[in-house]
Design a protein around this nucleic acid. Structure first.
Lengths: 243, 243
DNA sequence: CACTCGACTGAACAACTGTTTAGCATCATG
DNA sequence: CATGATGCTAAACAGTTGTTCAGTCGAGTG
């Protein structure tokens, strides 16, 4: 686990600028940060930022690339998942790596080349992990493995993107190890026993989806307004579109 | 299901300004949008925006409150979950409600009073749904119901916050009904059968967490560097902190 | 009618934005 | 020594920002 840049300090002005930019971009966003803010944090003039990075967007790209390299750094190490491991390393001492976590989250949410590359890599790692698990017999197969990998990747990133809400509803605790750790059991419960006690909801959704055609328009398995056989309104997750 | 403001047009200048602001804030963010942009979209002068909303931040608050009211509108209707239903309504025709979806996502991610209220409400709805399910016998109990409700709420919101990444990896399809609908089966698979075929990972995590004390510092169930009984390295989700 | 009040505007304001320019040290190399 | 990079800065530039102000228009009211 490498935590260079956070302990071994790179003291060149360019590095200080980059670090200050990552912190401020992660905290206040790209548009919410001015070059002069960054320069002040780094103890340099605004002109030097231009000198080293060409433009504000150039600085952003440099930050993106630095963070991508930091997260994918252990590429040499066989074919083991790299990003997920690096992320777990960060989350083991969240207070120390908070700036990187913040910037990583904004990168993913904002899109852009760096964020896209990170997401793709993360998705590929997840998909590979799932494929291995299915081959192993340790994981359930899926009717739509690609989409399942996407959903599980999204689920894994959700606490990162909504870390402020998470911190708030958890009281004061999170961005701390204890808070993050508390997510382990409920997550593994879900991934082990699921949520429902039987497969009726899944079965119902499968049957309903069979009758629909993918037209791209509004496709619903409309039972008709007068049909008494309407949905028994099972508890559903927000984005669950089972009819 | 009410879709007023999107079909029944409120043509007053203030409403046009508000709609334009929601669209632009959702698309380019608060800092990335100028009052003159909004005014141009609404066909008015920038000064009128100030006249009606006092300041740019006042406009934001008005947008927040309008969207909160829109999402919680059906409060009168018994105690049935309201926000989740409204959201599902939006997601049934995502192209029509895209501006609201975008703004909703940025509200949640940015925090602020409106976003917090929405998240809290959503969390309460989810927790209630889970409690009902457990009481019903249709859902599994949890060792940490509060945290489980949080995690499931986060999971439900993830596709909203990362909708751009979702759109990208799914090809061109999403923000369409078909794309969203494709998430149904993998999600319900996970919620029905879980991911793992047995409970070994969960069991291992439980045992390991028993031995840790919540000090607030770095708490790990360190088996010692020479101990051969180390983690068998099971496949783990990104944020899964099972040791 | 006069008078008020709200919706609305163009023009201006000061502050801030990213960027440019000219120039100052420093230091290695010929 | 001169030469030329290199790291760095103060000052200025042009454009945009949120906001203010004075004032126009029209509808309603006494």
């Amino acid at each position: 686990m490498n935590m260079r840049s956070a302990s071994t300090e790179d003291v060149t002005a360019a590095a200080r600028i980059r670090d200050a930019a990552i912190t401020r971009f992660g905290e206040h966003g790209y548009d919410g940060t001015s070059l002069r803010d960054i320069a002040r944090d780094a103890g340099v003039s605004a002109a030097l930022v231009m000198h080293h990075f060409g433009s504000k967007d150039g600085l952003r790209q440099a930050c993106d690339e630095w963070l991508v390299a930091e997260l994918m750094g252990e590429k040499a190490k066989s074919s083991a998942p790299a990003i997920a491991d690096s992320l777990r390393g960060w989350l083991d001492s969240p207070e120390q790596f908070r700036p990187f976590i913040d910037y990583f989250a904004t990168m993913l949410a904002a899109g852009g080349d760096g964020g896209n590359r990170l997401f793709d890599r993360l998705l590929r790692e997840t998909a590979a992990m799932l494929d291995d698990g299915v081959a192993n017999g340790t994981m359930q197969p899926s009717a739509d493995p690609e989409m399942r990998a996407i959903m599980i990747t999204l689920n894994g990133l959700a606490p990162l993107l909504l870390r402020d809400q998470l911190t708030r509803v958890l009281g004061s605790s999170i961005a701390s190890v204890a808070g993050i750790r508390r997510m382990t059991v409920p997550t593994l419960e879900l991934y082990t026993h699921g949520l429902y006690t039987d497969s009726s909801v899944l079965d119902a959704a499968r049957i309903a989806l069979e009758g629909t055609v993918e037209t791209g328009g509004t496709l619903r398995s409309d039972k008709g307004p007068g049909n008494p056989n309407q949905d028994p309104d099972p508890p559903r997750s927000v984005l669950d579109h089972s009819p």
